[in-house]
Structures are given as C-alpha cells and as structure tokens.
C-alpha cells in the first residue's frame, strides 16, 4: 500500500501498533540495555532475560535503525552469550528497534522487541544548520511578513 500521502488514517498501522501493545506470552522475555540512552559509536551491552531473571542464551539480536522510514536499515548485532548478553556499537543515532528472536531452544521460541533512542556522539552540524536555515526561512518569514503587514495599512 502506498502510504506516502496518507494524511489521516492508520488502518493497517493500527494493527501494527496494536500488535506491539498487546500483552502476550512473548512479553515474558525482555530486552534491557546497560545504558538507557546508548550513544552513537559507543559500545554498550544488551541483556536478554526471561521473566524470572534467567539469562536467555542463543537469541539472535538485530537492530533496525530508523524503523518505518524510507532510510530504515537493519543489521544483525549477534547472539546472546551465557550471560544472555551481547555487545552493540550503534551505527547511527536516532530511534532504533532492537529485536531478540530464538527459533528453538530449551525455553522455547520467542520474539521480543524494544525501541531505544540512540544519542548523537556530538551535536550534529548538519542538523543545527538545517534547523537554523529552516527556522530563519519559516519562522523568520512569518515574523518578517507579519511585521510588514502590521506597518502596512488596512488590508
């Protein structure tokens, strides 16, 4: 479905959202991170544990950078070790969905996801530049035109 110009409605998207907010057996396994806000290019540790705190071994952990966008990319981080952990160096800043899946094993199959925000290692110059330029043009344009109008007579 082409959703590029979909202004108002979610339809299938609701199903997607619903799927992520319904409580199922799969939610007994959780993903946690060493740091609440990992930083771009800085190593952090991902931990996959079951509800009772037991480490989940052999789960494949993947990262989807900028999920749901046209620039979304996916990469495999690795498999959890005996401690249920795997090291991760985020490849880009922004919103990232981590998923841990296991197709077979002693504690059964599962698939869980967790969305995290990866911080920029330093303030991005490109982001600052575009924020300023777009701000000058759009907000500055509004202020300039509005000011001219206020001094410019009736209609």
């Amino acid at each position: 479905m082409n959703r590029a110009n979909k202004i108002l409605l979610p339809s299938i998207l609701i199903a997607v959202l619903y799927g992520t907010n319904i409580h199922t057996a799969a939610s007994q396994v959780t993903i946690s991170l060493q740091s609440d806000y990992p930083v771009h290019q800085e190593k952090t540790r991902i931990l996959v544990v079951s509800e009772d705190g037991t480490p989940v071994i052999g789960a494949v952990v993947r990262a989807t950078y900028r999920p749901g966008s046209r620039v979304s990319t996916e990469s495999e981080i690795g498999m959890t070790d005996d401690a249920g952990s795997v090291d991760w160096i985020p490849q880009s800043a922004g919103i990232v969905t981590l998923s841990a899946t296991r197709t077979a094993g002693d504690s059964g199959e599962f698939s869980v996801t967790k969305t995290v925000s990866v911080k920029f290692a330093s303030t991005p110059a490109g982001g600052i530049l575009i924020m300023i330029l777009a701000g000058i043009l759009l907000i500055g344009g509004s202020v300039y035109r509005f000011t001219r109008y206020l001094w410019g007579g009736e209609f």
Binding site: I7, L8, L9, P10, L13, I95, T115
Partner: peptide
C-alpha cells in the same frame, strides 16, 4: 526521542 517512540505516517495514529 525522550520516550523512544517510533513515529507513524498517520495523523490519527
């Protein structure tokens, strides 16, 4: 970003 939520291309969502 603060609450790590994925935006959706839908006004209603």
């Amino acid at each position: 970003f603060a609450f790590a939520m994925v935006p959706r291309a839908s006004t209603l969502a």
